[in-house]
């Protein structure tokens, strides 16, 4: 979609894993971003003929290592390399794709979290700690390079027919584990909506942080119902042990530090993106979920 939109532009994709999308192979470079020297490698891949370079760093990984501490270190190392490359290239714009999860799932959250509130997720999970740190690193980058436009997008859980990460894995299970007595409200954004938001950010020079969320919220139990998956309510103390055991056995259910998200609501307000970016999601949370539910039907 990005490639189609900007015909006058050149798009380069960089990932440590083999390419899974319909991009031409020539636009793809396989670089392990966490490795030492990745920043130079990354910078060398960008042709110098381009006057303005935009780097979009999608920080949230597809799979989370079983050891979350390692995952955190890797994520931070990746971001540092991206920033080093950005410095070398004198990029015009830096876009970070973070997550609304950085606010953390707390009982004391207001119904809709806004961008002014400080992210509190760092205490909850090493992965969210990494995301918070990365957001800070990007903020610090602005202070040193005032002319660079730095924008951070915080999408809620991304669903769609193509997207795949540890959250879609969670909703893809035959049985969805929940926390007994808790039914948090969840919020989704369709993958194409997130791409549309990215386009807005690439086209416009809008600095700052934006929540990118779909309209409507729904209880987790309702989401499971719409997916046609039975839920297994487990008492909260058992839940964290179960997640740990499952990850040891090799079952990728969910990072055990994400269990608060099964108990407390972490939903964000997308009105800032609406007003400042002019971004209006096409899909509601329900529709994003349905599109995800029917993904297997499209061959």
């Amino acid at each position: 979609m990005l490639a189609r939109h900007g015909e006058h532009r050149q798009l380069i994709a960089i990932d440590g894993e083999p390419l899974r999308s319909d991009l031409p192979q020539s636009a793809y470079h396989r670089i392990y971003l966490a490795k030492k020297g990745a920043s130079r490698k990354l910078a060398s891949r960008v042709p110098h003929t381009h006057a303005s370079v935009t780097i979009v760093h999608a920080a949230l990984p597809e799979v989370i290592d079983i050891d979350e501490e390692t995952a955190r270190d890797r994520l931070i190392a990746e971001a540092k390399n991206v920033l080093a490359a950005a410095k070398e290239l004198h990029v015009h714009k830096l876009v970070l794709v973070s997550s609304t999860d950085v606010y953390g799932a707390f009982a004391t959250n207001p119904a809709y979290l806004t961008e002014e509130m400080a992210p509190r997720g760092a205490d909850q999970s090493p992965i969210l700690d990494a995301l918070c740190t990365i957001e800070k690193l990007f903020e610090n980058y602005v202070e040193q390079h005032r002319r660079t436009v730095v924008t951070a997008l915080r999408p809620s859980t991304i669903l769609g027919s193509r997207v795949r990460d540890f959250k879609t894995t969670f909703f893809d299970q035959t049985v969805i584990p929940t926390a007994m007595g808790f039914d948090p409200l969840v919020q989704f954004i369709h993958e194409s909506d997130l791409l549309r938001a990215l386009l807005e950010v690439i086209e416009k020079d809008e600095r700052g942080t934006f929540n990118i969320v779909g309209d409507n919220i729904l209880p987790l139990s309702r989401a499971a119902r719409m997916l046609g998956r039975p839920t297994v309510p487990l008492p909260t103390p058992v839940l964290s042990t179960a997640a740990q055991v499952a990850s040891k056995v090799g079952l990728e259910i969910m990072p055990s530090s994400y269990i608060p998200f099964l108990m407390h609501t972490c939903t964000a307000d997308g009105s800032k993106a609406r007003h400042d970016l002019g971004f209006v999601p096409v899909y509601t949370s329900h529709e994003a979920l349905l599109s995800f539910a029917t993904k297997g039907w499209r061959r």
């Binding site: 009982a107 004391t108 959250n109 207001p110 119904a111 809709y112 806004t114 926390a179 007994m180 007595g181 808790f182 039914d183 909260t236």
Partner: peptide
């Protein structure tokens, strides 16, 4: 509190804070 929080939210309760 398990069950109580969800029940109160479903029946129209909202956590007391200025934003809400």
């Amino acid at each position: 509190v398990p069950f109580a929080g969800t029940f109160i939210q479903r029946t129209g309760g909202v956590r007391a804070c200025q934003e809400n």
